[in-house]
């Protein structure tokens, strides 16, 4: 516990300093609350509307988690197909790249138009944005097994399935987690982006993205800050969940986990 406090004391000091400067600036320059609310005002908004925040948090968490989990299943499946042959990889990889390069804000309205303005559509937006990092990293892990290990399995007359399940897949787990770390954070971005457009269809029920547009239109800037804060808490939560599972799976054998042990 003491070590934990020691490790966070510098970031904590920066945090306190920035808050103090912010609060000081708001008071000194008499900045209106609808342009930049003071930290105190944001804290008051959090306290006052914690039930709305919690509700919005819960809705967005479900949407982001749904999209994220589907992207894990989908991404690993696609990577397993990609690992089968360089021809498959070369023919299809450029198209998965589209997932990464097309701006999600441009296709989110289309998705909501096509699939309706419900939770499922928002999940789909989160799913699309999460998919590419998982596909790319898992594929890389599956195909980058050292040659000697492949030869070892060949010498044992291992079947393709055996090689995939006992060599390539476990070898790809660290790379998979790199993808999961990236996707965990952006799943929340995906869900919120989806909600922004869902709300315009007048159905969007209370998620963080919906509430952000609402707070913005009402100039409730202190509440808007509280929502943004809640959204980043959600992103952090997902990220640390992934880091925990990564530690859980890898700490026995993986080098990166060993370094964390040594610290």
């Amino acid at each position: 516990m003491k070590r934990f406090f020691q490790s966070i004391r510098w970031p904590l000091a920066v945090f306190v300093l920035v808050l103090a400067a912010w609060q000081g600036a708001c008071l000194t320059f008499k900045i209106p609350g609808y342009i930049l609310p003071a930290p105190g005002a944001v804290a008051a908004a959090v306290a006052e509307r914690h039930q709305n925040l919690l509700q919005a948090f819960r809705i967005t968490a479900v949407e982001a988690a749904g999209g994220f989990l589907c992207s894990i299943v989908g991404g690993i499946s696609v990577a397993l197909v990609f690992a089968q042959s360089p021809v498959i990889r070369r023919s299809l990889y450029p198209y998965t790249l589209v997932l990464q390069t097309v701006p999600i804000v441009a296709i989110a309205p289309l998705i909501l138009m096509w699939f309706g303005s419900g939770v499922r559509s928002v999940m789909l937006v989160a799913f699309i944005i999460c998919l590419f990092p998982i596909i790319a990293n898992t594929t890389q892990g599956l195909v980058s097994v050292p040659r000697n290990l492949m030869d070892l399995f060949k010498m044992s007359n291992a079947s393709r399935v055996q090689t995939l399940l006992r060599l390539q897949l476990p070898h790809a787990v660290p790379a998979l987690f790199v993808g999961l770390r990236i996707s965990s954070g952006i799943s929340v971005i995906g869900a919120i982006t989806g909600e922004l457009f869902a709300s315009s269809n007048a159905v969007g029920e209370g998620g963080l993205g919906y509430s952000i547009t609402y707070a913005n239109s009402q100039l409730q800037t202190d509440y808007l800050f509280a929502l943004v804060l809640t959204a980043s808490v959600l992103g952090f939560l997902f990220f640390f969940l992934v880091v925990f599972f990564e530690w859980w799976f890898l700490h026995h054998w993986h080098e990166s986990a060993m370094k964390a042990d040594a610290e």
């Binding site: 050292p146 000697n148 290990l149 030869d151 070892l152 010498m155 476990p170 787990v173 054998w253």
Partner: peptide, 16 residues
Amino acid sequence: REIMSFIFQDATLLPW
């Protein structure tokens, strides 16, 4: 292959 074993230059162990 069934009657052969190959020992490589590095130990080629599965780390997991």
